[in-house]
């Protein structure tokens, strides 16, 4: 039982990170129907920026906690600027072009960002300075660390904040209006360009936080760390119903737990025929099965011809 609980904890932490990244995908998708494939790279840039800033400041004698905070802020600011420019350079000029066009640009941007990061930060894995003291908790036979607790709590807080923003503020209302019908929204006086740009900026800030969290959790960062993470988060967003905030969160956490339980128990269930080497498949198989019965994801509304 403690093992089962441990697996749930493992999945929950991993899932919180997926969820946070998935929010970025889903916000942009919800508003303009675009898969921002480069979103995973924003996470990566966030992690690398925060490493550089934190270790530079720490080396200059600043206490690690404070340096980490500065690193986080720097990462968020950089990523917000990056998100804004991504939208300006790669996506805005393409509005109204065939669906696949911005997808290819996004892939192109993803390649560009990865290689820029490689030129700046080098090819080696970088170690992340331990931002939080290493505290191990033991509870009912399970082990978890302070970092894990912080990740789950911080993700929850950020998601709550985002929900508040979307459903309780003027900007959020403008976002929802744009998502429903951009043309009508703009007739109502909504500045579509600003709304879309802010979706990118907010999503990127969340990505930066996710980057710092991933970095401090695994204590490593690398110019290729964003791609797989982005892909998983995207899967999570689709699983929950892309375009839907609650769906992205649920999808992320669900995906994390499915992966953990899959890796932990599939071997026992299949008598050793399948093992943890099929770990990456479970997410996709669950996705395919869910979509077969609910073609717009778990929480997705019918979007008609949109998707």
């Amino acid at each position: 039982m403690d093992i089962f609980l441990q697996q749930i904890i493992n999945g929950l932490v991993q899932g919180s990170i997926y969820a946070l990244v998935a929010l970025g995908y889903t916000m942009v998708y919800g508003i303009m129907g675009l898969i921002n494939f480069a979103h995973g790279e924003v996470v990566m840039i966030g992690a690398l920026i925060s490493i550089t800033v934190t270790s530079t400041l720490a080396a200059a004698g600043m206490p690690l906690g404070l340096a980490g905070l500065f690193g986080l802020v720097a990462a968020m600011l950089t990523c917000m600027a990056l998100g804004w420019s991504l939208e300006r350079i790669a996506y805005r000029p393409l509005r109204g072009s065939p669906r696949l066009t911005p997808l290819i640009t996004a892939i192109g941007m993803s390649i560009v960002l990865q290689n820029l990061a490689m030129i700046f930060w080098g090819r080696n894995y970088m170690t992340f300075p331990p931002l939080l003291p290493k505290v191990n908790f033991e509870f009912a036979g399970t082990h978890f660390t302070l970092v894990q607790v912080v990740i789950v709590l911080l993700s929850a807080a950020l998601m709550a904040g985002l929900v508040f923003l979307v459903y309780r503020t003027k900007l959020g209302m403008a976002m929802r209006a744009t998502a429903q019908n951009p043309a009508v929204a703009s007739l109502m006086g909504v500045n579509i360009n600003r709304v879309i740009a802010s979706a990118f900026v907010i999503g990127s800030a969340l990505a930066a936080v996710a980057g710092v969290m991933v970095g401090s959790y695994y204590e490593i960062a690398h110019y290729q760390m964003g791609f797989m993470l982005g892909l998983k988060a995207f899967t999570a967003a689709v699983l929950g119903g892309i375009g839907n905030l609650a769906g992205a969160m649920a999808g992320g956490i669900l995906l994390g737990i499915i992966e953990a339980l899959g890796a932990g128990y599939i071997g026992d269930f299949t008598g050793g025929f399948l093992g943890s080497h099929y770990q990456d498949i479970f997410a996709f198989i669950v996705l395919i099965v869910v979509l077969m019965f609910k073609p717009s994801g778990l929480f997705g509304e019918k979007t008609g011809d949109r998707a």
Partner: peptide, 21 residues
């Protein structure tokens, strides 16, 4: 136990938990 990961993975907690058991 025979467990597996891949050459891009960063999270091994699930298989390690299995191994722990």
């Amino acid at each position: 136990a025979n467990e597996y990961t891949n050459d891009k993975a960063t999270d091994f907690k699930a298989i390690l938990t299995k191994i722990k058991s």
